[in-house]
Design a protein around this nucleic acid. Structure first.
Lengths: 136, 136
DNA sequence: CTTGATCCTCACGTTGGCGTGAGGATCTAG
DNA sequence: CTAGATCCTCACGCCAACGTGAGGATCAAG
């Protein structure tokens, strides 16, 4: 399979695939003329890589994890890497969830304002400082 | 309040605060000698900015949203911005959750391997391709 | 008055995951 | 055989949120 098809089926750019190879994330055979040849499995592999990229892992971190997919041999280091990254992702999810909830609260206030533009001033302190209690 | 104290209390670097001012996210008075003077409210404001940064918003996007904190006046544009960003954050949370679940599955496989290193080969296809069904 | 901590303004450096030509070879359908 | 699509290798560009000095002014305490 050539690079264009892999790119299309995995939903990434051709440039991205070449970059992945440069980083050692995917290995491609070469045709006599130098064109990259990918096995079918490359598509799933690339999708997995994208999944981890989307979760904020660096190519170096992904490179550490990828061998596990082939071997399924869980060395202690591999188990640690997996749980470490899982923990990092959890932290990110928590941060995003906080931001999400905060925006939701502001959206609620906005909706209240639309219903009664004059009577909402009592909520002002909620918007100004939600997380900290009154200071006096 | 001077910049060092604000930085400490808000949990960011002094450089970051100067950068925020450069982006128009915080406004600081100046002492006669040119030192920045912040009001108490700056700490909460900066924390809010950090919250949105952590959620992946750009300074431009944050700049669009910040006025709402002061006025609490919900123009239609403001409501759209808020809901748009909330939607974007949701998408990110979903992506992170998928990655989290996938790693969790791999961790489970790793644990199975540790318990019985030889009998896990039947799970190999699960690791190789979880999302797609068998091809033949 | 001095000294160490804090502050100021430039202004260049960093990091990662690609985008985007330049310039040229190769493939494939008609 | 030819033309358009696809591929190749450099190699610079980009963007965002700061980090990191350089070189100098200011402040607070003893």
């Amino acid at each position: 399979m050539r690079i264009g098809k892999v790119a299309e089926r995995a939903g990434v750019s051709v440039r991205a695939l070449r970059y992945y190879e440069e980083q050692g994330l995917v290995i491609a055979d070469r045709s006599p003329s130098g064109h990259r040849q990918y096995p079918e499995s490359a598509v799933e592999r690339v999708k997995f890589i994208q999944l981890l990229y989307a979760a904020g892992l660096t190519s170096k971190a992904i490179l550490q994890i990828l061998p596990f997919l082939g071997t399924l041999i869980a060395t202690p280091q591999m188990t640690r890497r997996l749980t470490d990254e899982r923990a990092r992702i959890r932290v990110k999810i928590d941060a995003l969830t906080r931001a999400h909830d905060r925006l939701e609260e502001l959206i609620r206030l906005a909706a209240e304002y639309e219903n009664s533009p004059a009577t909402c001033s009592a909520s002002a302190d909620v918007a100004a400082s939600h997380t900290s209690p009154p200071r006096h």
